[in-house]
Design a binder for these strands. Sequence first.
DNA 1: CTTTCTCTGTTTTGTC
DNA 2: GGACAAAACAGAGAAA
DNA 3: CTTTCTCTGTTTTGTC
DNA 4: GGACAAAACAGAGAAA
Lengths: 253, 253
Amino acid sequence: MEDDCQKNRKTVRSKQSKSQTLQQMKQANSVRVRRPASQPVKKRAQTQMKSKTPLKMKQLPCVQNNRSEEEEEEEEGDGEEEVEVTGPSTRLRKRVPKFEESEGKSKEKETKRKGVKSATTAKISARHAKIKEEVAEYQCDIEGCTMSFGSKLELMQHKKNICPVKGCGKKFFSHKYLVQHRRVHEDDRPLKCPWKGCKMTFKWAWARTEHIRVHTGARPYVCAEPGCGQTFRFVSDFSRHKRKTGHSTKKSC
Amino acid sequence: MEDDCQKNRKTVRSKQSKSQTLQQMKQANSVRVRRPASQPVKKRAQTQMKSKTPLKMKQLPCVQNNRSEEEEEEEEGDGEEEVEVTGPSTRLRKRVPKFEESEGKSKEKETKRKGVKSATTAKISARHAKIKEEVAEYQCDIEGCTMSFGSKLELMQHKKNICPVKGCGKKFFSHKYLVQHRRVHEDDRPLKCPWKGCKMTFKWAWARTEHIRVHTGARPYVCAEPGCGQTFRFVSDFSRHKRKTGHSTKKSC
DNA sequence: CTTTCTCTGTTTTGTC
DNA sequence: GGACAAAACAGAGAAA
DNA sequence: CTTTCTCTGTTTTGTC
DNA sequence: GGACAAAACAGAGAAA
Ligand SMILES: [Zn+2]
Ligand SMILES: [Zn+2]
Ligand SMILES: [Zn+2]
Ligand SMILES: [Zn+2]
Ligand SMILES: [Zn+2]
Ligand SMILES: [Zn+2]
Ligand SMILES: [Zn+2]
Ligand SMILES: [Zn+2]
Ligand SMILES: [Zn+2]
Ligand SMILES: [Zn+2]
Ligand SMILES: [Zn+2]
Ligand SMILES: [Zn+2]
Ligand SMILES: [Zn+2]
Ligand SMILES: [Zn+2]
Ligand SMILES: [Zn+2]
Ligand SMILES: [Zn+2]
């Protein structure tokens, strides 16, 4: 690596991000707890390690591209500082108490000007949400749709049923669903489990519907194939059963 | 609801699915454990409830659309069966031992014919993977791309840089990335954390790069704004700092 | 609201 | 037959 | 590999 | 200047 100055990045574009993740329960009345999964998945919840000294890093002074040099201790980090744990490279950094001595608490907002930034971008940053329609040029003229965007490109994407959220960019079959899809990027989980003491919440009605069966124990799906009498609690499992066995694609009744 | 026979569903189409989720550690040497998140998020890992009787369900005999009637105990499930726990509707079904008495283990594969199904669909069911190229008609003729699909529609979607995985359907800016994106749907996590004892694995090199800083404690991002001296471990946090404060969008160096 | 950290679509950098 | 909305399905996928 | 269960894009059902 | 691949960024977003 060599020193070279950055030339004032511009970036910004209005698409893609991440998508979804799983949920959990842990309600008042038990249920089984689903852990978040490592990759290799190792059991045992918490096992606090000892590690005493904060293990201060070698922070080289030269800053390039706003990145201080280091990171060359990469592959085999040859135990440098005063380590006292077991192996030479087998511990995590001890958590610093909370910004040691509140360094730089002067957050001087600096007038908040975040650049011009393509003027009035539709602001669908749902999560830490605003959804300010700002000036709202480029309005969608599709039947029941009232959405509007800051650039013609964004409107074009929208009209092609493409989600404008940064890491998303999904394309849908219907414009109507495109609007419903937005809840994926919102924090609200307006649907609640009606079971007393259960705190589960949902974005989708169907998820709630199937979740309730966990409480009731219902297994509403019954394979109609003559010999087979299997029952299932979730459609998905019933679907898989039919797909893999070929059972009862046609209903008997 | 009333009885009416299903008319042999066809469904099948080749797009969309879910997306991603988070990772975890829990390696040999501690780290903090990240739990999977309920929605309302309630602490306390496991709290096993007592509940003795299996609480057998009212399973009505009439099967319609392969669904047995029930589910009307929905909203307020008026405590029916012999409950003996505290409240009238506050417990989960006790786990049945493991398919009681191995009922219906005759899985007779039934010749496996899963219908004609649009003949040779490219089979990108990555997860429980096959990626059989089957007959491989409709080949992509874009420069370095060797992918092929079972239908012209699928090839057309592919040429428009749209991911064919069922719940995905993301549209990308480059055809090259479309191919790289596939790893999102694959189970392999080929990149490993080089830290001794750490079992973290990754699909993306950058995730590994930043993860390693958790071990080293490095904070390579240093704000170049004159007064501010803040450092950051992850680009994302540095980016946010610059975005929110307006600091050092231009580099000093 | 906060901080810590991972995931990933796009942008930037580095080499030929 | 046509809307149109609500419900359900059919996968994908996470976790154990 | 398995089972249990949630998420969500598309399909099906139900009502007007 | 052009590839092209590797690295990095800039969000989104999960969890605590
Ligand atoms: Zn330098
Ligand atoms: Zn948040
Ligand atoms: Zn619209
Ligand atoms: Zn989206
Ligand atoms: Zn519940
Ligand atoms: Zn069956
Ligand atoms: Zn009936
Ligand atoms: Zn799996
Ligand atoms: Zn191609
Ligand atoms: Zn995809
Ligand atoms: Zn590691
Ligand atoms: Zn700063
Ligand atoms: Zn009709
Ligand atoms: Zn699966
Ligand atoms: Zn040049
Ligand atoms: Zn965020």
